[in-house]
Structures are given as structure tokens and as C-alpha cells.
Write a protein that binds this DNA or RNA. Structure first.
Length: 971
DNA sequence: GAGTTTGAAACT
DNA sequence: CAGTTTCAAACTC
């Protein structure tokens, strides 16, 4: 392998003489990849490792991950010192390890090997070619799994340059195979990729030109690059359907993949990079997928091709896993990426011209992407990178302002981050990284930075859309991603979202500054803007007495370690005190399982299709605070109010006095809910009809239902284990459910239940909707996509394909895999949701997604189930959305004050019809999209082990009623 | 920048 | 579960 690699390397070096960026990339990418792989793998493991800790793992898993990372970092630090020869040795080691890691799949193993070899080559090439420190290579070497990542990184970077070249040369390579192969073999991308990729890129560009005929070629090429890099994600998005299935197959895988995705996101483009070592295969597949995607992208039927490829990839579980991961990330990308081609050609311009706030509402990323194709690229990159960055570090995300996100903590951080520059974030990441390691990869970091800069510059050249700002932005992100990857795993997701949003909103960031700052080792103090103020755009804590080990500390509450920007005193919320942090977290969680759960749950207000009603009902921002505020003097008009701070309206859960929340008054919310309840009641009349329909439906699709039910049951079983997970996402959905389940006010359980319901509903819906008949798979896939999308995004653009949603779904599933990552992801989603909400108050989808992640993260099983559910009941996705939307408000209320929420629920109680079996209920709920969604939620609530069955019955009844109506209408 | 206000978190 | 205290952020000057 090595010899060929060397050859490839040589070739790559030769081929990329002008590819300084690649060279630079190689070190940087390698560095990043090292981080990401470790993180991803560890993160996943960690997350799993902390099953006991429902929520804590998520947040704090990162620390563990960090620990591992630290080891990796340490190694890295060492590597830099290592000679190139050592680096090569390391590469060999990695190869060996990777070989051992190679999972059952032979193809995957082969792919991995190829990747590894490629990566090795790349590294070697880098070493030889690049003056960059060996560290990167060494790091890469250590992380066998990373090779893929490295390759991805390299490939991504290289690709962009290649794209540039191609643009110039516009090579007519029709060799899809070659391109694909290169894609598959990331390493090959660099070595061979230089040529092949260029060709491929050239083809792509040509195809784009032909297809699109739009001037956005630049943007597209970038997009292509992104797709290639993230292509897996994009593909995943496209392949969502398949993914869903995959998810169903391997929930764990999905989780891992998610984690990986996170890692990937951190790493950059390549979701692949994030993939754990064993999943290197996945990465490879992802690459393959990318290649395919690219090709597809070239052709108009990108999405379709993607879809096919998804399944093609055979992609066994691994493939699926990857996809999930990629999807998760891809979701961000895919929305843009997947859309990019198909949409880009047709829609992008229009979209760009007139970004549909609504559409974008569903997915901020999308909107952003749409806003500027170039941004899309950036977004992708940013997505990748962003995740890596810890929320607090998040860059400026100027636009995002506040992620009003799900987690206040996160939000706060995010907000601050939004204010700050992405560059700063990157710097912070480095600081964190250094802090974690106790070392400062000064040389490496500086080199990396420089490389990234140069690379970014090259990219910028390549990408017209990105323009200089984007370049800088990209660079910073990439850099940050690398750094972040090293440091914070859990927060990555949040970070990503923030970053993405920030990028979108404000593509320009202080790149140079960030790098420069970053270069400056002075880790914490220099930048810390004394207080957690947002001056940097990154909020940070200023704890003086709590040692940053209490929820008072935003960092701690957000599940992230304190970093430079923090002005805390006697801080123990640092990687070196990981054990302490974890213990503390556990303690806090023991008291309140939802302590670290996102505080803000989004409703799926937008839900467009069926639910104009819901939308109307929903407050401008469907998101709500789980527990609600308790403001007495601020009238919910100041940041003292968590609801206001999160840019969400107050709900029934709030105990505020004289609420004047500009985002939605409690009274209004209640009124809306009442209206909903009335509707529910009216629908209840049709329950019988629904039931009948259900019976028939059930019969129609017993198999699906069975699996779903089984899953649901499992979920229920699981739910008790990890209440936190459940609650988060479903919290939104919960609202309804909360009526049903009074148990946990905040309880994730509600959320989970909602998920379950959603899944059930989805399944039901599928059945009810004739999906059961033969469409099941397709429906499932599609539905799952939709569902996921709904679930994640909450508000999918009607226009936007499921692809967008798909990624989100993946994210959702992914979080579950790794608690830490999940946390991050959840946060990220929350943020994203929040951000979206902020941007687009109407969109609730995002919040829901975040919540999902939470659910997933804490309770991997739940997430798994969810994934399966999503798969099964993709169609129900809409319903889910509806449910989420409807639920979200309730959830918020519920979550915040389940009991309190009960008031709101009271109306529902009337409607609730206890008796119906869950299945029926589910089925019924499924029928009615919106209503069913709600119904599902209700049912879901009961489904949760903790939740009282009575509540469930109620919920089920309600949903059923709604479903009945829907069914009736359908019939 | 210091001091005050505010509400969440923690404690009893 | 309610009340009180502690805490850090938000806010004001």
C-alpha cells in the first residue's frame, strides 16, 4: 500500500504543484482529521459509555472525548516533532490499526485501506511536500480511522483547488468512475485526485454550466466541492430514504455516524472525517457517495442519483451509518448541497434572489445557503467546522445572534458567539485545544493557520461566490474546525449551527484576526473579554464562586468547557478536571435529568401543508421555554427573562407576571392552545371513524406497524432510562403530550414520547395513507426524510426536498449515538433552531430538531428507535412536524411546567379518549398529518414509560380524533 | 468599571 | 413543595 501511496503522493505532489492549498490542506486537514476521528469515535463511545448519565454524557461526554482527544493531541503534539519518517511510520501504524479496525464489511475494508493508503500518501506527501509539521501526519497516522477523514479533508481542500483548476482548464473528464474512485479513495483524491478530481471537477462544472446555465458556476463548483467533501452528507440527504432505513437498521451506527458527522462537521467538509476509524469504510463510502453525488450533481438528477447511490452504496450498515452522519451534517449541507444542484440549477437563483423567509425558516442553513450559493459552500464548510467549535467559541455568527436556541446556556453562548467573529472562535478553539493538551501546537497551529489561510485564499479564488470574505471565513472555520475538533466534541454541533448561521448571515469574519489571534498563544486572558460579554461574539462565563461547576455557569450548563474567553475564577470546568466535571454533572442530573437539556423547545409552527391552523396557532416562534420563565419585574422584556433571551414567546409553563414578551405573550399562547384543544375536541368526534380506519390500516400494513410498534415499545422501555433525551426534542411535541403526561415538566420523556408518537404516527400515517401497502419502503424513506426533516427542521420548505430534512434527521439520530456529540448537536440544533427562529420566527422546525438530538443523545436507544421510526413513518414526518409544531408549544409549556401545562391540557383532557390502544392511537394519529402529529405527541407521551398511561390515552385520543378527521378527509 | 437589579439555580 | 439563599448575568449609571 505504501509504495503505491508514495507513488500517488508523488503524483499528487507533482500534480498539485500549484496546489499549495492542498499541501497546506494536507497538514491542516490531517490535523483536523486526527482530531475529528478521535472525537468522533471516542465521542460515540463516550456517549455510549455514559449511558448511565442521560444528559450529562452529552455535554460532558465531550470532556471525555476531549480526554481521548487529549491523548491524540498529545500525540499530535509529539508528532510535530517527529520526523517525516516517523510520520510515515505512524501512517503505517494507522494503516495497521485501521486494518484491525476494518469491520466486517470487506468492501469497506478495502475502501478503508485505499483510504488509508491514500491518507498515508497524502500525509507523506504533505510531509515531504509541505513544510507543515509532521504532526498532522502523525496525528493522522495515529488515527487510522482518520485517514478517511484526512483524506476527506484533503480531498475537500484539494477538491476546491482542483475545482478551481478545473474551472480554468475545464477538463472534459467524463470519467465518473475515476472521479468516483478518487472520491472513494480519498487518498486517491489527493494523489490521483489531483488529476482525477480536477477532471471530475471540470466535468462537474461543465455539467453545471450545461445544466444550470447559470452564472453561479462558481458557487456551484464550491458547492460541488462541499458536496464532495460533505458529499456524503449531501448524498445522505438525498438518500435520506435509504438512510432512514439504515438508521432503522443500525441505530447505533447512526449514532456513531452522527458522532462522526459531528466530528466531520468539525473537521470541515468531510463528514467523512468525523467518522470513526472503524467507520473509515463509511467515510470511503461517503466519498463514493460524494463522487456519485457530484456526478449526479453534474446531471440534473442529482438528488435522484444521490438517492440511488445511497442505496447503491450498499452501504451496508456502515454505509448507512456514514450517511447518517453525513446526513446529519449533510443536513446542513444537503439542504444547501442537495438543493444546490437541483435547486441550484433551477431554484438557487430564484431562491437567492428572493430567499423565502418561510422556506429558510425551516432551515436557516438553507436560507443562508440560498441567500448565496457561495455561502452555501461556506456554510458547508462552516458546518463542518462550526461543529467543531465549542458553542462559546462559536464565531461570530453575527446573524444568528442568538440561537435562541434550545439551551439557554447554549443560546447565551451562541449569542455571544454570534456577536464574535468566527475567527475568534477558531482562536478560541486553538486555545482550548492547547489548554486541553496543556500544550500549544504553536508551530503546527501557526502552520495550519497559514496553510488554511493560503488554502482559503485558494478556495476563495476558486469560489467566486465566497469572495474574499468567505475565504477568510472558510479558512477560519476550517481552522476552527480543526481546532475545535481537537477540543470540544459535544459542542461541535451547536457550534456548527452557530457558525453556519453566522457565516450565512455574515460571511465575512475576521479571518486574519482570528488566525492571528489564534496564533497568539495567549490563550484565555487576552481575548477573554472580561465578562462573558459578547464582545467577542462568544459569550463566556464569569463565574467567581461556583467554580463553573454549577448551572449558573453558562459554559457548564451548555456542556462545554470553559475557555479563554471565560473570565471565571477557580474554574474547574476544564478538561483537566474532567472527572470533576462529569461527577458534578451527574449530580446535577440526578437532581434534574433535564438540567442540561435544552431549555427551549421549538414547535413546528411552519408546518405548512396541512397545518395552517397550527401555524396560526403557533406563536411567531414556535419555540418555547421548557420550564418557562418566572419573571416578576422584567415583564419578560429583558434578558433576565429566559424566554425573551431565547427569543421565544412565553407559554403556559411560564409563571411570569405581566408578561409582555415581544416574542409571544403567555396569554396569547394559552389562547392559541385553547383553540387547538377545541379543534382537537372537534376532531375527537371523528375518532371512531379514525379507529375504524386504523383497524383497516393496521391490517394493511401490519409489518411496518409491528416494527414500529416494537420500536415504540422499545423506545418506551428506553425512555425511562434516559428521560432527558426524550424530552428535548419532543419537548416541542410534548406540549400536547405534556397534557397527556404530566409526569415530567421538562421531561425529555415528553419529547421522546412525541418522537415515538411521531414515529408511530409516521408508521400509522404510512399505513393510513396507503403507505403501508407497497410504498412502505419508499414512503418510509421519503417519509422518514420528511419526518426527519420535520422533526429536525420542523419547518421544511415545501419546495425543498426531503433531502434537507434528511440530514437533519441524521443529525438527530447521530446525537443519540454520542451523548457528548448529541449534546453538542442538540445544542447546535437548538441554536440553529433558535437562530432560525430568530431569523424566521415562524420556523419551529429547527428547535424541534434540536430537541430531537437531545433525545437521541441521552437515550441512544430512543434515538435509534426514533431513527427507525423516522424510517418507517417518513410520511408521518409531516405529521410529526405538525405534531412537533403543535406539540412544541405544549412541550415547552409541558416541559417547563408539566403540571402547569396541565392547565392547558385540561381542555385536551376532555377530548382525550383514554382507552384506545397505542397502536390504534398511533395509527389514527398517523392518518392526520397535522392533527395526527399532535395526536402522536399525545400518544407518545403516554408511551413514555414515565408518563402516565392516562395521559397517553388522552393524547392518543386526541390524536386519534385529529387523525380521524384527516382520515375521513382522505377517505 | 462599579454598582444595582433580576431571576435562575441551589439549598433548606 | 415552598421558601430562602446564592449566584451570575443583565442592566444602569
Amino acid at each position: 500500500m505504501e509504495s503505491p501511496k508514495t507513488d500517488k503522493i508523488i503524483t499528487s505532489a507533482v500534480t498539485t504543484p500549484s496546489n499549495s492549498p492542498q499541501v497546506q490542506e494536507s497538514p491542516f486537514s490531517s490535523y483536523v482529521s486526527n482530531l475529528s476521528p478521535i472525537k468522533s469515535v471516542k465521542a460515540a463511545h463516550v456517549a455510549q459509555g455514559f449511558p448511565g448519565l442521560s444528559s450529562p454524557p452529552l455535554v460532558f461526554t465531550s470532556p471525555r472525548i476531549n480526554v481521548q482527544r487529549e491523548a491524540s493531541f498529545l500525540k499530535r503534539s509529539q508528532y510535530p516533532q517527529l520526523s517525516s519518517a516517523e510520520a510515515t511510520q505512524n501512517d503505517n501504524r494507522d494503516k495497521k490499526s485501521t486494518d484491525g479496525l476494518v469491520y466486517s464489511e470487506e468492501s469497506s475494508s478495502i475502501l478503508q485501506r485505499g483510504l488509508i493508503t491514500d491518507s498515508k500518501k497524502d500525509f507523506d506527501a504533505k510531509d515531504s511536500l509541505q513544510s507543515e509539521p509532521h504532526s498532522s501526519s502523525g496525528c493522522i497516522d495515529e488515527y487510522l480511522a482518520d485517514p478517511g477523514e484526512v483524506d476527506c479533508l484533503n480531498s475537500t481542500y484539494s477538491v476546491s483547488p482542483c475545482l478551481k483548476q478545473i474551472d480554468d482548464t475545464s477538463k472534459p473528464s467524463n470519467d465518473l468512475k475515476e472521479t468516483i474512485l478518487t472520491c472513494d479513495n480519498k487518498s486517491g483524491l489527493r494523489a490521483d485526485a489531483s488529476t482525477v478530481v480536477e477532471e471530475h471537477l471540470g466535468l462537474l462544472e461543465e455539467a453545471k454550466k450545461d445544466i444550470q446555465g447559470k452564472p453561479t458556476s462558481d458557487a456551484r463548483p464550491n458547492i460541488v466541492d462541499e458536496e464532495e467533501n460533505d458529499g456524503t452528507s449531501s448524498e445522505c440527504a438525498n438518500i435520506k430514504s435509504s438512510l432512514h432505513v439504515d438508521h432503522a437498521i443500525d441505530k447505533q451506527d447512526c449514532q456513531h455516524s452522527q458522532v462522526k458527522d459531528r466530528g466531520c462537521s468539525h473537521q470541515d467538509d468531510c463528514n467523512c472525517t468525523s467518522q470513526p476509524l472503524p467507520e473509515s469504510l463509511q467515510s470511503v463510502e461517503a466519498y463514493e457517495d460524494f463522487g456519485e453525488n457530484e456526478n449526479a450533481g453534474v446531471s440534473n438528477g442529482l438528488v435522484e442519483n444521490m438517492l440511488f447511490h445511497g442505496p447503491k452504496a450498499n452501504q451496508n450498515q456502515r454505509g448507512i451509518r456514514r450517511r447518517c452522519l453525513q446526513f446529519g451534517e449533510a443536513s446542513l449541507y444537503t439542504t444547501g448541497g442537495s438543493n444546490s444542484y437541483p435547486e441550484a440549477a433551477s431554484d438557487t437563483s430564484s431562491r437567492l434572489a428572493a430567499t423565502n423567509a418561510e422556506i429558510e425558516n425551516a432551515e436557516p442553513c438553507r436560507a443562508d445557503l440560498k441567500a448565496t450559493s457561495g455561502k452555501r459552500k461556506l456554510v458547508k464548510l462552516t458546518d463542518c467546522i462550526a461543529p467543531s467549535l465549542p458553542p462559546p467559541y462559536c464565531g461570530n455568527s453575527s446573524t444568528f445572534c442568538k440561537p435562541s436556541g434550545i439551551g439557554l446556556h447554549l443560546n447565551s453562548i451562541v449569542n455571544a458567539a454570534s456577536m464574535g467573529h468566527a475567527s475568534t472562535a477558531s482562536i478560541k478553539l486553538e486555545d482550548l485545544y492547547m489548554g486541553v493538551q496543556g500544550k500549544k501546537p504553536t508551530s503546527v497551529s501557526s502552520q495550519v493557520i497559514e496553510k488554511t489561510k493560503s488554502f482559503s485564499s485558494s478556495l476563495s479564488n476558486v469560489e467566486k461566490n465566497s469572495a474574499g470574505d468567505e475565504e477568510g471565513w472558510f479558512e477560519t472555520k476550517a481552522f476552527t474546525a480543526a481546532s475545535s475538533a481537537t477540543t470540544v466534541s459535544p459542542n461541535n454541533l451547536e457550534f456548527e449551527y452557530q457558525v453556519v448561521q453566522d457565516e450565512i448571515e455574515k460571511p465575512n469574519f475576521q479571518k486574519a484576526d482570528s488566525f492571528e489571534e489564534y496564533d497568539q498563544p495567549s490563550p484565555t486572558k487576552k481575548r477573554k473579554k472580561t465578562s462573558a460579554t459578547e464582545s467577542d461574539g462568544c459569550k463566556r462565563c464569569n463565574c467567581k464562586k461556583t467554580k463553573c461547576l454549577k448551572l449558573y455557569c453558562d459554559c457548564f450548563a451548555a456542556g462545554i468547557y470553559c475557555a479563554e474567553p471565560c473570565a471565571c475564577q477557580g474554574c474547574f470546568n476544564r478538561p483537566e478536571y474532567e472527572d470533576t466535571v462529569l461527577e458534578t454533572r451527574q449530580q446535577i442530573e440526578s437532581r434534574n435529568p433535564l438540567a442540561f437539556a435544552p431549555k427551549i423547545v421549538q414547535r413546528v409552527t411552519e408546518f405548512p401543508p396541512n397545518n395552517a391552523e397550527d401555524g396560526s396557532r403557533m406563536t411567531p416562534s414556535s419555540a418555547r421555554h421548557k420550564r418557562g420563565c418566572n419573571c416578576k419585574k422584567s415583564m419578560c422584556l429583558k434578558k433576565y427573562c429566559e424566554c425573551y433571551q431565547a427569543n421565544v414567546g412565553c407559554s403556559t409553563g411560564c409563571r411570569c407576571d405581566g408578561c409582555k414578551n415581544v416574542y409571544g405573550r403567555k396569554e396569547e399562547y394559552i389562547a392559541v392552545e385553547h383553540g387547538l384543544a377545541k379543534e382537537m375536541v372537534s376532531n375527537a368526534a371523528s375518532k371512531k371513524n379514525l379507529e375504524d380506519a386504523f383497524d383497516g390500516k393496521l391490517e394493511m400494513v401490519p409489518i411496518k406497524r409491528n416494527p414500529i410498534h416494537a420500536e415504540l415499545h422499545d423506545v418506551h422501555d428506553l425512555t425511562p432510562l434516559t428521560p432527558t433525551f426524550q424530552y428535548s426534542d419532543h419537548g416541542k411535541n410534548v406540549p400536547k403530550s405534556r397534557f397527556l403526561s404530566k409526569r415530567s415538566p421538562e421531561s425529555d420523556l415528553f419529547i421522546l414520547s412525541s418522537y415515538e408518537k411521531s414515529s408511530r404516527s409516521s408508521t400509522r400515517n404510512l399505513e393510513d395513507n396507503d403507505i403501508l401497502s407497497g410504498r412502505d419502503k419508499d414512503l418510509l424513506n421519503l417519509d422518514s426524510c420528511d419526518w426527519q426533516a420535520d422533526y429536525n427542521i420542523g419547518t421544511m420548505d415545501p419546495n425543498t426536498p426531503r433531502c434537507d430534512t434528511g440530514p437533519s434527521v441524521c443529525h438527530l439520530t447521530a446525537p443519540s449515538d454520542t451523548s457528548s456529540t448529541a449534546m453538542a448537536s442538540c445544542r447546535a440544533r437548538d441554536w440553529t433552531n433558535v437562530s432560525k427562529v430568530q431569523r424566521c420566527p415562524g420556523s419551529d422546525s429547527l428547535s424541534s430538531g434540536s430537541s430531537l438530538r437531545w433525545r437521541n443523545s441521552p437515550v441512544t436507544p430512543v434515538t435509534r428507535i426514533v431513527g427507525t421510526k423516522s424510517l418507517q413513518g417518513l410520511e408521518s414526518g409531516r405529521e410529526i412536524h405538525d405534531i412537533l409544531q403543535d406539540d412544541t408549544p405544549e412541550i415547552l409549556k409541558d416541559s417547563s411546567t408539566p403540571i402547569k401545562s396541565v392547565k392547558a391540557s385540561s381542555p385536551n383532557k376532555k377530548r382525550v379518549s383514554p382507552p384506545h390502544g397505542h397502536i390504534r392511537e398511533l395509527g389514527s394519529s398517523s392518518s392526520g398529518a397535522l392533527r395526527s402529529g399532535r395526536k402522536f405527541i399525545l400518544k407518545a407521551v403516554p408511551s413514555f414509560p414515565p408518563l402516565t398511561p392516562c395521559i397517553d390515552s388522552k393524547g392518543s385520543t386526541i390524536q386519534e380524533t385529529s387523525n380521524l378527521q384527516d382520515n375521513n378527509s382522505n377517505k
